[in-house]
Amino acid sequence: MRIDLTGRTAVVTGSTLGIGHAIALGLARAGATVVVNGRKQEAVDTALAAIAEAVPAAALIGVAADVGTAAGAEALHAAVPQADILVNNVGVFGPQDFFDIPDEEWTRFFEINVMSGVRLSRLYAKDMAERGWGRIVFLSSESALNIPADMIHYGFSKTANLAVSRGLAKRLAGTGVTVNAVLPGPTLSEGVEAMLREEAEKTGKTVEEAAVAFVREHRPTSLIQRAATVEEVANMVVYACSEQASATTGAALRVDGGVVDFIA
């Protein structure tokens, strides 16, 4: 299968690092004009340079905007008012005991992980529907289904991504615009590496070894028995954004290594 997105413009939020950066790189390799987004201009510039080095012919646009706010979402849309593909990737995570999570932290997770995608989909989807083609992907998580006891606020936000993506797929039925959610499991992104580094240093393990130990202890149902790479997650997203995925909509596409223990 050769995925060709030449002539398509793809907005990827939170794409300066991690899964988002891998998605932006994958879409650039498929020929899309890619809009790289992050909160800080320096991070955006660094990400653009890295993608340009990997894909010299890439067509790239950088927009520094905090899409976890209404003003930031509007600023991104003002800079790039039309897109064929929207990947709602930006998100925050981190372990915290339920009884220690203040109201403002619940609100922060909701604004960044949920409302960023709601607002940007509202801004871009109507135009996609009018033109008869579009792809919207929400980055959810296996934590949407297996709510972690130490990250309940994160799990709640990722379940909300599933609800929004499924409902929006129904709202856009028959328009040529597909809406899907992609559910990564434990993935060795920069954020996860940072979380595991302290444990790795304590035990004398590499970060990769610490990731394997984490998966085996905290996600024992994993069938691959390791963390995924960001590229493995990005591959699923690029497919969901392709012409070939035209019959896939309203779906929860798992890239969780088999962590979620059910057949459907």
Rank of each mutant, 00 (worst) to 15 (best):
G18N: 07
I19C: 02
I19G: 07
I19L: 07
I19T: 09
H21E: 05
A22Y: 11
A22F: 11
A22S: 12
A22T: 10
A22W: 13
I23E: 02
I23H: 05
I23R: 03
A24Q: 05
A24S: 03
A24Y: 06
L25H: 14
L25W: 10
G26T: 02
G26W: 03
L27K: 06
A28Q: 10
A28P: 11
A28V: 06
A28K: 11
R29Q: 15
A30T: 03
G31D: 07
G31A: 09
G31M: 09
G31N: 11
G31Q: 09
A32R: 11
T33V: 13
T33K: 09
V34E: 09
V35R: 00
V35W: 00
V36R: 07
V36G: 05
G38C: 10
R39I: 15
K40L: 14
K40Q: 15
Q41P: 13
Q41I: 09
Q41E: 15
V44P: 07
D45Y: 05
D45R: 12
T46H: 12
A47V: 02
A47C: 00
A47P: 04
A49P: 06
A49T: 08
A50L: 11
A50H: 14
I51H: 03
I51N: 07
I51L: 01
I51F: 06
E53I: 11
E53N: 09
E53Y: 12
E53F: 13
A54C: 08
A54M: 05
V55A: 13
V55H: 14
V55T: 12
V55P: 11
P56T: 05
A57P: 11
A57Y: 08
A58E: 09
A59I: 03
A59Y: 07
L60W: 07
I61V: 14
I61R: 15
G62H: 03
G62A: 00
G62S: 03
G62W: 02
G62K: 05
V63D: 01
V63E: 03
A64R: 00
A64T: 03
A65G: 13
A65V: 02
A65P: 13
V67E: 01
V67D: 08
T69R: 00
T69D: 08
A70L: 07
A71C: 06
A71W: 04
A71T: 07
G72M: 05
A73L: 04
E74G: 15
E74L: 15
A75M: 08
A75D: 12
L76M: 00
L76P: 01
L76N: 00
H77L: 08
A78S: 10
A79R: 06
A79V: 11
A79H: 07
V80L: 03
P81Q: 02
Q82A: 06
Q82I: 08
Q82Y: 03
A83W: 15
A83K: 12
D84L: 14
I85H: 09
I85S: 12
L86V: 08
V87I: 05
N88D: 04
N89C: 05
N89W: 04
V90S: 00
V90G: 00
V90M: 01
G91D: 02
G91T: 04
G91S: 06
G91N: 01
V92S: 03
V92T: 09
